[in-house]
Amino acid sequence: MALIKCEDVSIGYEGQTVVRDLNFHIDSGDYLCIVGENGSGKSTLVKSLLGLKGVESGRILFGDGLKQNEIGYLPQQTDVQKDFPASVYEVVLSGRLNSRGLKPFYSRADKEQAYEKMDLLGIRDLAKQCFRDLSGGQRQRVLLARALCATKKLLLLDEPVTGLDPIVTTEFYELIRRINRESGIAVVMVSHDIESAVKDATHILHLQEKVLFFGTAEDYQKSRVGKTFLGGGQDD
């Protein structure tokens, strides 16, 4: 059983279908990159995977013990956060919320988890720092730590390197690759950066209102759609 399996899924806004007939699946340990142009339905699909948006038809199935609210989501940063008075520790700890249910306070285990994830991402020494004083790359690490607190099985990253400089971007990809390989956490990343996507990912999902391609990264590079999108068409 896959972690997530989409069967004939169509999603839309107010009767207007944005993406249709999606069929793909994510297995444990996969690194899936969702690519496609702006408006191709990537963000819409993300919302549906998280349960923030219902599907028009089809089914999204969760398996392997993954629950929908246990996806480690790394959203795009919002304006509110640029001026938000919160310590790194508070932000990371809030990732444990889905394990709390109605219980109002965090347990010692939750706090240990938060420190463990901060150690893993090398941001332990920032714990008391204010989120708004951090650099873009540090913020992404903090939000990644929060996402890791929320999941044991699947990370969902929505264009995580937007606005990061090239060096920080490379480091961030390295980090994701490490988490994917060493912790066995499956990664789903929405990305514009198709070249890095193909290098790191095991699978590619190319959207253009429907699935243009779904398969391994290797096959994608050989496929016609992949060649066109990668700009490699000229060597034919």
Partner: peptide, 23 residues
């Protein structure tokens, strides 16, 4: 406020993430 403090923090800081984790 005390009972829902953590949830109020979560939805204030990042409503989308909070919703995604079932708040």
């Amino acid at each position: 406020f005390v009972f829902f403090y953590q949830k109020i923090f979560a939805i204030t800081f990042d409503e989308t993430f909070a919703q995604a984790t079932g708040v």
